[in-house]
Design a binder for these strands. Sequence first.
DNA 1: CCGCAATTCAAACAGGCGTTTAAAACTAGT
DNA 2: ACTAGTTTTAAACGCCTGTTTGAATTGCGG
Lengths: 235, 235
Amino acid sequence: MGVEPSKGAVSLAATKTMTQRDEVRKRILMRAGEIFADRGFQSATVREICQRAEVNVAAVNYYFGDKECLYIDAVKDARELIASRWPLPEWTRETSTEQKLLMFVTTFLQRLLNTDPSNWRMKLLLREILEPSRACEEIIQESFRPFFGVLLDIIREAVGPNVSEHQLHQTGFSVISQCVFYLANRRVVGIMVTPAEREQHFQTEMLAKHITQFSFLGMKNSRSLPEPNPTSETS
Amino acid sequence: MGVEPSKGAVSLAATKTMTQRDEVRKRILMRAGEIFADRGFQSATVREICQRAEVNVAAVNYYFGDKECLYIDAVKDARELIASRWPLPEWTRETSTEQKLLMFVTTFLQRLLNTDPSNWRMKLLLREILEPSRACEEIIQESFRPFFGVLLDIIREAVGPNVSEHQLHQTGFSVISQCVFYLANRRVVGIMVTPAEREQHFQTEMLAKHITQFSFLGMKNSRSLPEPNPTSETS
DNA sequence: CCGCAATTCAAACAGGCGTTTAAAACTAGT
DNA sequence: ACTAGTTTTAAACGCCTGTTTGAATTGCGG
């Protein structure tokens, strides 16, 4: 029993070793995030995480207490890093509403679909959204709310100020859902679309264009349906 | 070694006992499906399944061979039962395109969001869509393709015959994604929307109306965006 | 160079997992 | 009632999991 886990395991160590300590922590956190992202909390094993981080099995418990705390820290870390890369492109007062929407959708899709090394963070957060663990609910909440707020502002601008709250929300979800779809349901897209078509028309840029166009038209209307009754209708 | 597992474990038993045997199989299959649906393959345990089905732990291996075969059978079973409840409302030649779309979306949402005892089947299939196991890929494929085809027909009818294939697919995904969203992301909706608003405006019927209206407008256009360049644009 | 705290390590632990086993219980046909 | 085949059962198996442990190693101020 050398030390308390994860709390203040260091007493009066030099600041130099402090950074060393943090490097190990960060290395574990990274590998853990990657593995949690594509296996989930349950299926990911501490042993594999430690193997990939090139540390002993006991390191997780020494640095983080237990597996769950490691997971929470990984999610928290992913959220913070993504939040810092979140900022949407700035727009001026001259930027049209449709352009703002395109920028929003493009940025969102880039974060979701890019294949650079930081992409696993988004997968990890998505996993938390689809099946939240009580521990991380708050984290996700804080991460998602402001982002959603930006979208709602754009929509309000598009449809006018006197739109009802629920229409605003429904429309917002319609936009969000189309973007998230391509991350969560990649396999389904692969089934329905040939590789060539996928290559040409399902890259981030083209998808952003389609979603923007589709949604911008869809939202520019808050009147109700003509209440279709299924019998009489002769064009 | 009394019997081969899962193949033809009965040789010349009476047809009466045959039904008994099938009853046990079906009971296990049901409980397994329910548990697989909300825990996933890995997290679901054979022991819990057997406990809920009120059979011995060994029953799974006796009747199905192993856990994975049980899972595959459960998915297959869910697919078949849902497929039989799938049929969209029949429409006549007088039914308008928008009505067809509304019917399609309504049916889809009902299957996804209803809370009757058969709902776990949809969750199980959704899980397979989000993280497919190689074993069930084909099953999902066969289940999803024809359903998607019906939607594509509606869209083709709405936008005219000379629409390009990729626009058709993109639009189809836009509709599908909005529906699936409300099943997969229930928690997110709960965060962003007050219970009262949810009660009033996020029930199946209202969502179907919104999605139909939103999508119908969105798809009624295949022209390209005005190619927004972010600098010059003075309304 | 010593001593002390921080860190690493191999080994072991208890518990849960899917699966197997062999005996018991049950169900006909004769 | 006996027997042969089917189903159920409790117990055990081997494996893998997260975690703990105590000794070995390291790093550093004195």
